[in-house]
């Protein structure tokens, strides 16, 4: 079983992830756009870059609203925590070295892992809970949003349960959910991982071209 999960299943999941992600990205990019644009006041590219890489904190005017703080803090806590764990947890570094890239890097110390995982968990939990109890997010959330949050949560959780690293079963469980997550990823709202620079870029280009906040 574990051989299957770590062998064929892993490669199958990875393939689905890559193929359909490329399909979705390609589809969006190849849809095309307006041919004619009115003369720009300033650089669209600069605006796009600025919106993708620089303006990443909520604008001051919105910080008067508690929910904006909440989503920003919980959102960053979750995302940064998740990426840190994903890339720097010792077993992940080992895995990347052995199965993916052939080289690794210095992992986080154990306590670092615990703290980051806790931050990520707290962020995800708070955001997911709000989906249910805030009338706004309750109205707009799709089944997909709950599945995406739920799967991510389970992946993180099984990962932490397998921390002891002496149970093949727990390791397999974690891997299994990771594979499920990878398969679900290209079809779900998890895909915002790849589309956010596009959507922020397009809006940024509009701001840039029009010289907004020049």
């Amino acid at each position: 079983m574990i051989a299957f999960i770590e062998g064929p299943a892993w490669y199958a999941a990875l393939t689905i992830f890559v193929v359909f992600s490329l399909w979705r990205l390609g589809w969006v990019l190849l849809m095309g756009g307006d041919k004619h644009k009115s003369p720009a006041r300033a650089s669209a590219a600069a605006g796009a870059i600025r919106n993708i890489f620089v303006d990443l904190a909520p604008r001051g005017a919105f910080l008067k609203r508690g929910k904006v703080w909440f989503v920003a803090l919980a959102g960053y806590a979750f995302h940064l925590g998740l990426f840190a764990v994903l890339l720097f947890a010792a077993p992940h570094v080992d895995f990347i070295e052995q199965k993916l890239l052939g080289f690794g890097w210095t992992p986080m110390p154990y306590w670092g892992f615990i703290v980051t995982a806790e931050i990520a968990f707290a962020g995800l939990l708070l955001l997911w809970i709000r989906r249910f109890v805030d009338p706004v997010t309750r109205l707009i959330s799709r089944l997909d949003d709950h599945l995406a949050a739920g799967l991510t949560f389970i992946v993180m959780l099984t990962g932490c349960l397998a921390l002891g690293q002496q149970s093949v079963f727990l390791r397999g469980l974690h891997m299994g959910f990771v594979e499920l997550w990878l398969v679900y990823f290209p079809f779900s709202s998890l895909f915002h991982t790849f589309t956010w620079p596009l959507s922020r870029g397009y809006s940024g280009a509009l701001f840039g071209r029009r010289g907004i906040r020049a």
Binding site: E118, F121, L157, C160, L161, L163, G164, Q166, S167, L170
Partner: peptide, 12 residues
């Protein structure tokens, strides 16, 4: 298995 999983989850 349960115990190690529970312990790590609990501590976390």
């Amino acid at each position: 298995v349960f115990a190690t999983a529970a312990l790590h989850g609990h501590n976390l």
